[in-house]
Design a protein around this nucleic acid. Structure first.
Lengths: 356, 356
DNA sequence: CTGAAAGCGCTTACAG
DNA sequence: CTGAAAGCGCTTACAG
């Protein structure tokens, strides 16, 4: 593979001049530029990004560590992250933690070793020593979707409180009183928050959330299956199961189906995170939709701000309820296509520095 | 960030010795090793992978350029690729071409600039000059799922001929005679092959595949929607629509639903590529399942063989029909869970060197 | 077993 | 505007 030396020789100039042409440095004569460009063309030369990174101490690469690529929500997020990063001149390397803290650490370590310019993380747990070190050691970092409290790291996420409240209103209106939730891991913010939001909303309707109506899941389908089976085995099973993510809803659907029961007649189902397939499941599934694309873009902008020395902003966007037939009723004209509400940012109080 | 020099100073040895310890070189005294390891620990030193790559001319990184990450088939593929790569000591950088040749070129170029050790590609088109150059210039490369003919590049894919034949037999048995297909781009092998397999199978039953029953899609949902609308507008619409991938099937479902029609009563639907959601759609969708995980793993093994100087093997695995209710009938005991058949490789005739 | 030194392919003050 | 030279952080013959 041709190196800068070869180009310099071919063009009859020094490597410094070649470098200047390649980097659009102003002080290069038109003649030198022409000759260098011709040599580059003739040799099919492409600068070695590894060498450049070593020298400039920047890789123009962002790391994205997500909990589970197979989860359509995170796939969507990853895609919007890559798009925005590309628009800003960065590449992104994705690390899939598969909801495993050890794998998450593996990816963080690998990414750090590669000297990525910044790290976007949706943490799988409460923060391993490595993750905390990374956050404190000054590696530019932004949390997206999930976060770890007590760190001076901007957070880009959506707030589901209002939507969960809307969901409970919807369920209550349909006459449901025994509502259960399949929670995510307590070590994750979204695992905890969604349960709390649900509990609060139930409280507003004078309903309790008994422990037996809280299934412990891990955001993966299998756990949704198991939790649902346990609910169905109860002397008094819930009338509604609210899965804290779309994969556990898939598992719940599997479990209900395996027993020969029907949604919503035998048991109602709702999910956090909306995905295109929810329109076509039997029945279409009521879900809380996050503005996923906008979250990904905002996260990249915050991270790049941080990398390039501008003050990064934490961003919180609202989620919203998309009611379909899986909890009962809901008219023929239910929503069909996912549509994201307009973005809004928190212009002030940037980081979650003061978080408990 | 601490460098090897800092470690050497701290341990009271030369950087050469530090390097030897880090790389498990045998000729290092136990004493030196201990002191170096202690220094590494004390400083929290991590070797700079960029510098190491520049020096050793290997990045231990694989590039994966896929057509569309949002397509669950490719997401699954990407995941298995990463798993196998990790097991073999490689990282992978994913480039999402989004079915756009220009984006595909962008990613190939970026990956090459980063000096990845090898490239796994599922080409979006027939081969841009850049892609052909890359393949010919000796960059270790393996095609997965889709390929470009006429290149000396191993191919890891699945063969759907038998499964498509099974599908047509199934459809014919249900009494369907007017069968249509939504094809992928003719520039892709899978776009062409699936139509040809379908045409052949129809021929075996004395059925023709008229041009109006071939919808031109691009493997994305929107194109499945449009093609289906066109079918439904025909004076004599088809009785069955076979979508050449799962996203176009989603689009077809959207279109059928938008007209207030029912599957399979008004029109039957089948898809290439099986995904977990197909069990829960209304109705469950008949699909041709590829051994996706095994394809990803085999592709990585072939690529790493190539990189490490062993002869790489092309691999072809069979796809299989999973009949559900979307084409009519099919019993209560239809399959529920995706299961991959055991792997099989072609031990001989490694590359598709002699392809037309 | 160990260290000094060269060199991977770049970029960038510095001097002219 | 241009080039010689230093240096980014490593690895690895080479000599001892």
């Amino acid at each position: 593979m041709a190196s800068i030396k070869d180009v310099a020789a071919e063009a009859g100039v020094s490597v410094a001049t070649v470098s200047r042409v390649l980097n659009d440095h102003p002080s290069v004569s038109a003649d030198a530029r022409t000759r260098v460009l011709a040599a580059v063309e003739a040799l099919g030369y492409r600068p070695n990004a590894v060498a450049r990174s070593l020298r400039t101490d920047q890789t123009r690469t962002l790391g994205l560590v997500i909990s589970d690529v197979l989860n359509p929500y995170f796939t969507h997020l990853a895609r919007s992250v890559e798009e925005e990063a590309r628009a800003l001149g960065y590449s992104v390397i994705i690390g899939n933690a598969d909801e495993r803290p050890d794998l998450q650490d593996h990816h963080v370590r690998t990414l750090l070793d590669r000297r990525i310019d910044g790290l976007l993380v949706s943490p799988t747990d409460g923060g391993s020593p490595l993750m905390l070190d990374a956050a404190r050691s000054g590696t530019p970092m932004v949390f997206v979707d999930r976060w770890i409290a007590g760190l001076d790291v901007p957070v880009v996420r959506s707030d589901g409180h209002a939507a969960v409240h809307d969901l409970v209103a919807h369920l209550h209106g349909l006459g449901h009183r025994r509502l259960a939730i399949i929670a995510g891991p307590a070590a994750t913010t979204t695992g905890r928050e969604r349960v709390e939001a649900f509990r609060q909303a139930l409280g507003a309707y004078g309903l309790a959330l008994p422990d037996v109506y809280i299934g412990q899941g891990d955001f993966q389908a299998q756990s949704g299956r198991r939790a649902t089976e346990r609910f169905l085995d109860l002397a008094e099973p819930p009338e509604v199961v609210f899965a804290a993510d779309n994969l556990m809803a898939l598992g719940a659907l599997d479990a209900v189906r395996a027993r020969g029961l029907r949604v919503p007649d035998d048991i109602a189902l709702a999910a956090f995170d909306d995905i295109p397939w929810f329109v076509h499941t039997d029945p279409p599934i009521t879900a809380i939709a996050q503005p996923t694309g906008e979250l990904g873009r905002a996260a990249v902008r915050a991270l790049v701000d941080r990398i390039e020395g501008r003050p990064p902003e934490s961003v919180t966007l609202p989620a919203r309820l998309v009611a379909r037939r899986s909890c009962g009723e809901t008219a023929p004209h239910e929503p069909q296509v996912l549509q994201e509400p307009p973005a809004s940012t928190e212009p002030s109080a940037a980081t979650n520095r003061s978080q408990p």
